[in-house]
């Protein structure tokens, strides 16, 4: 065989296929820790109610504001409810609302960002102004306004947070799409007459998926942050839920009297959950950049 005709050697054997994202993730200690914490709270949210020693809603006027003890590991609150049970079950509502809101905003934000980045022009210009306008306000304030107008309930919190995050995700996706839009494979698609929807969803979307994945995990952390905050100021999850933010709101007036256990454990629960989710998000970002 001659030199010219000999095909270039197969490189598929030389370059091993990239390891899957999952296997790159489990090699990161921060991912393992973050995932363990997150899974713990997800477990509490699903199975907690069946496992806890006391009914988290049952009041006991004889045993109000008891400090932590063998009977009540985290003490009792001003109505005599067992705080340990409430903390465990308290994961449920926030871990329902925040992920659903994230899912909603990621779906809508992705569609918005794809359209803005792909079509550009006047549409992009107008939508960008709208996005800028909404992003000029803190999420908590936007949510506060919408919840004041609509009335606070668990469902409205879900939708309000879902919609509030659309512009942020849209902006991230748009930036990622714009850098893809300039690549020649998009021109190649035009040169075989693909319709815009195909180009957007089949050609471009897979290449911006990593960015969307990172954004979604980061956003989940903030959704938890925001739901907790809104619950704390009374515009989020409503009583009698054992939600952590809500419990802190109803008890923080007591800490001047030394009843620290009524807020500390709920606070730590929120802190560990958001840190766990953020460790996961950070690891995903790191693993994708490897």
């Amino acid at each position: 065989m001659t030199a010219t005709a000999a095909p270039e050697q197969d490189r598929t054997t030389q370059k091993s296929a990239p390891r899957s994202l999952a296997s790159r993730l489990v090699r990161r200690p921060s991912f393992v820790i973050g995932a363990a914490i997150t899974l713990f709270w997800i477990g509490c949210a699903i199975f907690g109610a069946a496992l806890v020693p006391y009914d988290p809603f049952e009041t006991d006027v004889m045993n109000t504001l008891m400090p932590p003890s063998a009977a009540h590991w985290f003490g009792t609150d001003d109505l005599g409810r067992d705080i340990f049970s409430r903390v465990i079950v308290g994961a449920r509502d926030i871990l329902t609302v925040a992920p659903l809101a994230t899912l909603l905003s990621t779906a809508l934000g992705t569609a918005l960002g794809l359209a803005m980045g792909y079509f550009g022009g006047v549409f992009d210009e107008v939508m960008s102004r709208l996005v800028d306008a909404i992003l000029a306000l803190p999420t908590v304030v936007v949510a506060l306004l919408a919840l004041t107008a609509l009335g606070a309930s668990t469902t409205t919190v879900l939708f309000v947070i879902g919609f509030t995050y659309v512009p942020i995700i849209g902006r991230t996706v748009r930036a990622a799409v714009l850098s893809e839009r300039g690549l020649d494979y998009v021109s190649a698609a035009e040169l075989r007459r693909e319709n815009p929807l195909y180009t957007m969803f089949v050609e471009i979307l897979p290449n911006v998926m990593p960015a969307i994945l990172v954004e979604a995990t980061v956003r989940l952390g903030y959704a938890i942050f925001t739901v907790a905050t809104l619950s704390f100021i009374g515009f989020g999850i409503q009583p009698p839920s054992p939600d952590w933010g809500l419990s802190i709101a109803s008890s923080y007036g007591l800490i001047g009297g030394g009843y620290w256990w009524t807020v500390l454990f709920d606070g730590l629960a929120i802190a560990t959950l958001v840190i766990g989710v953020n460790l996961v998000a950070d690891s995903v970002q790191g693993a994708l950049n490897d």
Partner: peptide
């Protein structure tokens, strides 16, 4: 980086409460 990450994501009212407990109470 780890401290920054943790500090950024904990809601203000949570760190606020803990600070009040430690330094105020």
């Amino acid at each position: 980086s780890a401290l920054g990450l943790a500090a950024t994501i904990v809601p203000e009212f949570v760190s606020g409460i803990i600070l009040i407990l430690i330094f105020g109470v």
